[in-house]
């Protein structure tokens, strides 16, 4: 069953004669529990596509249906609520709130969902444990390494049990070892918990754990590569 169905997605930037046509009519559907990587060179439009699919941006043309909701029709407030309740995000530079501890960073979206304080605290600790950061709850982002911060960002993204996890080049700012650990963590979420994941990456090596790689070039999908149910040769 498709959890994301995007049809004829166009995204243009600028006005009048200075229009840049970044996405030129993309049709894509992603199944529930699938792990999809979007790959391509810089400027291919992969991040822009992910922003359309993750309700962070609005296509100039086309429709995006997520979990049965036509998201293009939502107003700003509904989009924010939709993102909170349905989607999880991992950004390339961790994007943690610098003034909050690891635990509080994870708690914030849970509190926003209306979870009581103590319950949110417990859930945050559980999620932090899950990403292998046991005992790092009170640490500020500045007291964590890049890889650790990205793990906390993943904990924040999954704590609310989102239907889809979006990861925008989550390894871009990490060394190889940390990058591999982060991708393994995302892969295991998909493998063990059936988490739907859409990940943008430059590195083919990191995409090898996916079920499917969508190759893009110049705003169009040029190739779809199937890697098997759980990737890496399986």
């Amino acid at each position: 069953m498709s959890i994301i169905v995007a049809k004829n997605i166009h995204r243009k930037f600028g006005k009048d004669k200075l229009i840049t046509h970044v996405l030129k009519g993309i049709d894509i559907s992603i199944e529930e529990g699938e792990f999809v990587a979007i790959m391509g060179k810089s400027g291919a439009g992969k991040s822009t596509l992910m922003y359309q699919l993750s309700v962070l941006d609005e296509p100039t043309e086309g429709t995006v249906e997520i979990d049965g909701t036509e998201v293009v029709d939502l107003n700003e407030r509904e989009k924010t609520e939709f993102r909170l309740n349905t989607l999880g995000y991992v950004f390339q530079d961790y994007a943690l709130v610098p003034d909050l501890s690891a635990e509080e960073n994870v708690m914030i979206p849970l509190l926003m969902k209306g979870m009581p304080w103590e319950e949110a605290k417990l859930q945050a600790k559980k999620s932090i444990d899950e990403v292998g950061m046991v005992g790092k709850y009170p640490n500020l982002p500045s007291e964590l390494s890049g890889g650790e911060q990205q793990r906390v960002a993943i904990a924040r993204a999954i704590a609310g049990k989102p239907k889809i996890l979006f990861a925008d080049e989550p390894t871009a700012n990490l060394d190889t070892v940390s990058g591999t650990q982060v991708v393994d963590l995302i892969t295991s979420l998909n493998k063990n918990h059936g988490q739907t994941v859409v990940m943008v990456t430059h590195e083919r090596e990191y995409a090898m754990g996916c079920n499917r790689i969508i190759h893009m070039e110049d705003g169009l999908v040029t190739n779809i590569e199937y890697l098997g149910r759980f990737g890496r040769g399986e």
Binding site: R77, E81, R83, L84, Y89, P109, M112
Partner: peptide, 8 residues
Amino acid sequence: ILKGIGID
């Protein structure tokens, strides 16, 4: 980012 992750 806060708005992105769904904070009002």
